[in-house]
Amino acid sequence: ITGDVSAANKDAIRKQMDAAASKGDVETYRKLKAKLKGIR
């Protein structure tokens, strides 16, 4: 179950990262990237 949750989280975070990148929001992008590392 835990694996599914983190996989879903990663997917959601990647989508947020894409949105931040397209807006040029480097700050948010970095925060999300750090979150991704924390999940692993």
Rank of each mutant, 00 (worst) to 15 (best):
I1E: 10
I1S: 12
I1M: 11
T2K: 12
T2I: 11
T2W: 13
T2H: 12
G3M: 12
G3Y: 07
G3C: 13
D4N: 09
V5I: 13
S6P: 08
S6Q: 13
S6K: 08
S6I: 12
A7F: 11
A7P: 10
A8E: 10
A8R: 07
A8Y: 10
N9D: 14
N9W: 15
N9L: 15
K10E: 15
K10G: 08
K10V: 15
D11G: 05
D11W: 04
D11A: 10
D11Y: 03
A12Q: 11
A12K: 06
I13C: 00
I13N: 01
I13G: 00
I13H: 00
R14D: 03
R14K: 09
K15D: 05
K15L: 09
K15W: 04
K15E: 08
Q16N: 03
Q16D: 06
Q16W: 08
Q16E: 10
M17Q: 00
D18N: 08
D18W: 15
D18K: 12
D18V: 14
D18P: 00
A19N: 05
A19K: 08
A19W: 08
A19Q: 08
A19S: 07
A20Q: 02
A21R: 13
A21M: 15
S22L: 14
S22R: 13
S22Y: 05
S22G: 05
K23M: 11
K23H: 04
K23D: 06
K23I: 13
G24R: 02
D25C: 00
D25I: 00
D25K: 00
D25R: 00
D25P: 00
V26L: 14
V26N: 07
V26T: 07
V26M: 15
V26E: 06
V26G: 05
E27H: 05
E27N: 04
E27V: 06
T28M: 07
T28Q: 06
Y29W: 06
Y29V: 06
R30T: 07
R30K: 10
R30G: 02
R30H: 06
R30S: 04
K31V: 03
K31G: 01
K31N: 04
L32T: 01
L32F: 03
L32Q: 00
L32R: 01
K33H: 07
K33V: 09
K33A: 12
K33P: 00
A34M: 08
A34E: 14
K35N: 03
K35M: 15
K35Y: 14
K35A: 12
L36Q: 02
L36W: 03
K37I: 08
K37F: 05
G38I: 08
G38A: 15
G38H: 08
I39S: 06
I39G: 06
R40V: 15
R40K: 09
R40Y: 15
R40D: 13
